[in-house]
Structure formats: structure tokens, C-alpha cells
């Protein structure tokens, strides 16, 4: 789970398609990503999960050769990103890529098909992106959801080996999001490698084989969704209302991992809620509104986010 552990196993990955080795990129004083290292193997579906501003877009842009890193080494199919892109091995869906005015959906799909060595048929490309009904329509006359599917079509039409999707469902409602991931998973099932950036935990959980958690530009966790849940299992969240109980005192209770004290309400994370609560009640019998819940993936993510952000 830790970054170091991953690095030692990752460097042994025989045919990594994507590899980041200590990649750093700054914008002025802001470090967008810091010593980021990970590898992605053939056929994997990997989520780059993190809150807004975590560096996900910068990481995907560096991966696609759209930005240069300040330090570190990025490899795509063993070479520099621009080589793999020039060979048509990569299809990308950027966060807010526009499309030219005055062209139809089918014409755009045909353009992408003409650029790649071994593209999908026009019919398949339109069907996979659910655009058959609007093939002859000009792109500027489409709805937001349809335009989003056009951007997916731009990524899929060339039938590339690697799909890179940056926040691909940002503009979609729940039903459209589900349909979108069905389509992506269908193409992943054909042996494609998929890397997608998202801030939605449930997407990472439901779609990805592997989740990379990025916070403040650093990789704070790396594992399968189940591994990450397992790390959170046994952790519980205890919260209660108490006046005059300092966070310091609460933090010294047995099995407590972290404490957040609001103005009235205190929330703590514990590996043994029974032990913690017993000790808590001994010290402060007058606490009110006690709530105990077990942590899920969301809790694990929030905790990682807190740790990474501090």
C-alpha cells in the first residue's frame, strides 16, 4: 500500500505500458505533482483518484506529452510519450477539449479514423459512443451530454491500445455516467488499458482494477479497491458532543488514530471502538450524542486525503 512498497514491486513489472518515475512538475511556486511514481500494466483499468487540485490533470497531461515534467522520467510503451502517440497507440479524452465549428459528428469520427493506423469502423465508433442518432448533426448543435460522448468518440475511434480519460463523466448525470462506464468497460474488456482521472470515489471503486490516490500532488495510496477497503476495515469513526474536552486528551485515548475537534463536536478514528469508547466514558461521562460507525472506502479515502494534505 505504501508508495515505497509499490516502487520496489513496480520496477519489476515486465511490460509496463505507462511508467512514471519520480516525476515532478511545478507551476511557479505551486507544486502540481511531486515525485510521482507508478506503473500501469497491459490490460489494467486504473483510476487516478483525488480531490480537485490534486494534480490529476497535470499527471495526465504529462503522460500525453502535452506538458514537460520539471524532473523525473515518463515512459509510454518504453519510450517518450510523443513516440507512442505518433504511432497511434493512445486515445485521449481531455477535460475540456473543444471541437471545431461547422463539422458533423460523423466527419469528426472519420477524421480520427483517418489519423490512426487500425481504427474502428465508423459504425462501431458511433455505436460505442451512443452517437448513431446524431451522426449527421453539427457538433456545435449538440447537447452537453452528447458533446461529452463526442469526446469519448474522439478517444475511441482510432481503436488505440491505451485510453487516457481525464474526468470523463464530469458533465454527466447519474444514468449517463453509468452508461458511459458500461461503454468504457466494454472496450476495456477487449484488452485495452485504461487510465482515468476522477474525483468520484464510487467510480474508482466500481470501474478500476487499481486505484492510485493522489493528494496534493503526491501518491498517498496505491492498491485495488478491495485492498483499500481492507485497510479501512476495523477502523471506526466515533463522534460525540462534549464541552471542554480537549483534542489532546481525546487523542491519548487507547486505539485512537486521529482526532478532529470542531467547536462542539469531536470526531475520532479508532482501530478499536470498544476500547476507545470505554476509556472515553470513564474520562468524560457527560458526553452526548455518541455515534459510532464503521469506516468504508470513503472513510479510507477521506483519511488518506487528510494525511496527504497535511
Amino acid at each position: 500500500m505504501s508508495q515505497d512498497a509499490r516502487q520496489s514491486t513496480a520496477s519489476a513489472m515486465p511490460d509496463a505500458i505507462v511508467s512514471f518515475d519520480n516525476v515532478t512538475r511545478r507551476f511557479g511556486d505551486v507544486t502540481a505533482i511531486e515525485r510521482l511514481s507508478f506503473e500501469i500494466g497491459r490490460g489494467e483499468t486504473v483510476a487516478l483518484l483525488g480531490p480537485n487540485g490534486a494534480g490529476k490533470t497535470t499527471a495526465t497531461e504529462i503522460l500525453l506529452g502535452l506538458r514537460e515534467p520539471d524532473a523525473g522520467d515518463v515512459r509510454l510503451y518504453g519510450g517518450v510519450p510523443s513516440d507512442a502517440i505518433a504511432r497511434g497507440r493512445v486515445g485521449a479524452m481531455l477535460q475540456d477539449a473543444g471541437v471545431p465549428q461547422g463539422v458533423t459528428v460523423a466527419e469528426l469520427v472519420d477524421l480520427i479514423r483517418a489519423l490512426y493506423p487500425d481504427p474502428l469502423s465508423r459504425e462501431d465508433a458511433l455505436r460505442l459512443s451512443d452517437l448513431e442518432g446524431v451522426a449527421g448533426r453539427r457538433v456545435e448543435r449538440l447537447s452537453g451530454g452528447q458533446r461529452q460522448r463526442v469526446r469519448l468518440a474522439l478517444a475511441l475511434s482510432g481503436d488505440p491500445e491505451l485510453l487516457v480519460l481525464d474526468e470523463p463523466t464530469a458533465a454527466l448525470d447519474v444514468a449517463a455516467r453509468r452508461a458511459f462506464w458500461d461503454r468504457v468497460q466494454a472496450s476495456a474488456a477487449q484488452g485495452r488499458t485504461v487510465l482515468f482521472a476522477t474525483h468520484r470515489l464510487e467510480e474508482a471503486d466500481q470501474v478500476a482494477d487499481q486505484v492510485l490516490v493522489l493528494v496534493g500532488g503526491r501518491l498517498v495510496a496505491d492498491g485495488t479497491p478491495n485492498q483499500m477497503k481492507a485497510a479501512a476495515v476495523g477502523r471506526s469513526v466515533v463522534s460525540f458532543t462534549a464541552d471542554g474536552l480537549s483534542a489532546e486528551v481525546v487523542g491519548r485515548l487507547p486505539a485512537v488514530e486521529s482526532v478532529e475537534a470542531g467547536r462542539k463536536r469531536v470526531t475520532l478514528h479508532t482501530t478499536d471502538p470498544d476500547l476507545t469508547v470505554r476509556a472515553l466514558l470513564q474520562q468524560a461521562p457527560r458526553i452526548e450524542d455518541l455515534q459510532i460507525s464503521s469506516a468504508g472506502l470513503e472513510e479510507a479515502f477521506l483519511q488518506l486525503t487528510r494525511e496527504g494534505g497535511s
Binding site: 500525453l64 506529452g65 502535452l66 502517440i85 505518433a86 504511432r87 497511434g88 493512445v90 486515445g91 485521449a92 481531455l94 475540456d96 477539449a97 473543444g98 471541437v99 471545431p100 480520427i112 489519423l115 490512426y116 493506423p117 469526446r151 474522439l154 482510432g158 487516457v164
Partner: peptide, 12 residues
Amino acid sequence: ASGWLRQLRTTP
């Protein structure tokens, strides 16, 4: 400005 040129840079 629309990002179309960036999109094209991800193609061959």
C-alpha cells in the same frame, strides 16, 4: 482557446 489543438496533439 477551445482546446481542439490540444486534443489533436494526443493523436498521431
